[in-house]
């Protein structure tokens, strides 16, 4: 039930003319292992904002729609810098139907805003920064989101795992995308604020 809803928006956005911008962000990570930590801050920089990167990504149509519905387009197009943990379309597809339906309801716009903001961290936290913070923190690093919640970054083998306030876990996959106003880390699960 929920997949068609998100996918409808995906189709609409794709119709605008989508290019996969993920490749623009450098290839230093290993998409197979989710080795974001091997991505470096020196990854190739896009000349686009986080907003452009998301809206033009072939795998972030649902997120792009959520950002728009949440009223955060100007934020992610602004000066930042921000670090965005960007759930891909498959991540949105994993949401329970009632959650998706609820988030898309007009009266739930506030919750949607908080949800999206809970994927955003102030400043530029690269994959390398994350890896160092986890190492320095003896296995974990805390990240304060701009939605008011906290995320915990840990390692699982070579991959970096982001745990939300509800205990939900997302894996960073692929390389980071360096944008003009921040960095985007692709994750495979939608993070919940609490």
């Amino acid at each position: 039930m929920h997949r068609p809803v998100w996918n409808l928006t995906a189709a609409g956005l794709l119709a605008l003319g989508v290019t996969a911008c993920q490749q623009e962000g450098g290839q230093s990570g290993d998409p197979n292992t989710g080795n974001a930590a091997s991505g470096t801050a020196a990854a190739a920089r896009s000349d686009k904002s986080i907003l452009d990167g998301v809206t033009q990504s072939a795998e972030h149509s649902s997120l792009a729609n959520a950002v728009k519905a949440a009223g955060l387009t100007e934020t992610l197009a602004g000066s930042g810098p921000y670090t965005l943990f960007a759930p891909n379309d498959a991540a949105f597809g994993k949401l329970p139907a009632e959650t998706s339906t609820g988030l898309l309801a007009p009266e739930a716009k506030g919750r949607l805003t908080t949800l999206v903001a809970s994927h955003i961290v102030t400043g530029l936290v690269t994959a390398d920064d994350l890896a160092k913070a986890i190492e320095r923190g003896k296995g974990k690093a805390m990240l304060a989101t701009l939605g008011g919640s906290q995320l915990t970054a840990t390692r699982s083998g070579e991959a970096v795992i982001i745990t939300d306030g509800s205990g939900g876990q997302a894996r960073i996959s692929g390389a980071e995308m360096m944008q003009t106003n921040g960095v985007v880390h692709v994750i495979d699960t939608v993070l919940m604020p609490k």
Partner: peptide, 11 residues
């Protein structure tokens, strides 16, 4: 505050 474990300065 809690949540600033990672270095986050603009490049």
């Amino acid at each position: 505050p809690s949540g600033y474990d990672a270095y986050n300065l603009p490049m």
